[in-house]
Amino acid sequence: MILIKVIGAFLAIFSFAIVLETPKKYLVYAGIVGAVGWLVYLLALEGGANDVFATFLSAAAIALVSHIFARVFKTPVTVFLVAGILPTVPGAGMYRIVYYFIQNDTAMASYYLTITLELAGAIAIALFLVDAVFRAFQKGWKQNSLRYQEKNVDKSSKIV
């Protein structure tokens, strides 16, 4: 059952990556990012986590895999992250707020409002954390690579 859902997530993210004009060669990887995210979400729910925490873990996994792919393929993180994060974005929660609001069920509407804000916050914090971790490593690395380039240029110009 989980396998079918994960394959479904792959298919969904693959499709939305097409809509977002992701380059052809990265479509499959964007799909993998989405599948990993959904797998983590389902496993977290199985393991007894609540919806917000499961979403947090899922978003963190999505961000992590996206950053790794971005480093491997030397392409912007956005390419993988934007499509991959879609299943965690609380579209359903937003609909339920409207639905209960229309039915004059203020209690349920505000319940879903809280949940939706919590979900959005969980996604934001997950992205923050992973971003910060990679940024901490990246800074030194990038400066080094720039320095390395300049050294190389100096050498070659001397040889010429």
Partner: peptide, 26 residues
């Protein structure tokens, strides 16, 4: 409800949301 929840997906501003968070993070 299920149909509407599915159909909302193409409208959802995923790029804006992710870029907003990444801009604040940087």
């Amino acid at each position: 409800s299920n149909i509407i929840i599915g159909c909302i997906m193409p409208l959802i501003p995923g790029v804006l949301f992710v870029n907003a968070i990444r801009d604040v993070a940087s």
